[in-house]
Design a protein around this nucleic acid. Structure first.
Lengths: 125, 125
DNA sequence: GTATTATTGCAATAAAATCGCAATAAACAT
DNA sequence: ATGTTTATTGCGATTTTATTGCAATAATAC
């Protein structure tokens, strides 16, 4: 499946690139200056996830949030396994530069992590 | 608000007490041998959460799972801050006896954690 | 320019969770 | 026991989030 470049794709990607925070579908739709169909936004985002451009976080509110996969020193690993912080005051989610560290019992194989800390962020405290 | 004892409450609590795993609303409804309304189950579960009898985990699937708050050596703390494991094979969630450890940047205040590791559990591997 | 097919918009649908309201039934007092 | 208070329940409707089918559109390659 060869990807094509479209205005929609560009717009959503730029939004994410310029955002310090992870964005919900809702937030993306509101911040876009061009009008894009709800379903299309979801499809674009899911394609980004498949392609490893973006990662998805599901917060306690049950909603999906999307953030650019930042290229760090330790590409593959660090991208997925970091904590996220959800601020109850400004209602945003951001990627923390804090790795998720754990050990699991024998026989358990971890493929992915979804770790969200909730509280009040620096901006709001 | 004084709580009352009802068959519904008993039934749901017993289910959770006897389960090794965290249960979704759906799973609870199916496993109950008495018929209880969907909304009622949610309300009972939410009351348990308010009362600190049960804790709620939201997984990547966006669904809520409920598990009894086990009394450990270190009551308050350990209850909330442990990892959960979601097995993609048997589609269950369980509490791991693995504490969530992290450090957050200055000015951040963590009130809660929602950490789920996803993969294949011991039973399925 | 034309053909191929990835992408989009629209409407419908699915699924999870909550809410308002009237009816029911625990808990307590008499 | 009986009655009163009000927490709890059932029902139906609603909200919110996310996905899907299908025909129309448009990006890419020739």
């Amino acid at each position: 499946m060869i990807r094509r470049n479209t205005p929609t794709k560009e717009a959503v990607l730029n939004l994410l690139l310029n955002s310090r925070k992870a964005l919900s579908h809702d937030a993306i739709e509101k911040q876009l200056n061009i009008e894009i169909n709800r379903a299309t936004i979801y499809r674009v985002l899911n394609r980004f996830c498949e392609d490893g451009i973006v990662h998805k976080i599901v917060a306690e509110d049950g909603k999906q949030y999307f953030a650019i996969c930042k290229k760090c020193e330790n590409p593959q690993e660090v991208i997925q396994h970091h904590f996220h912080f959800r601020c109850l005051s400004c209602d945003t989610i951001e990627c923390l530069q804090v790795p998720v560290e754990y050990s699991v019992p024998n026989g358990y194989e971890v493929q992915n992590t979804n770790c969200v800390l909730t509280g009040v962020c620096n901006d709001c405290s």
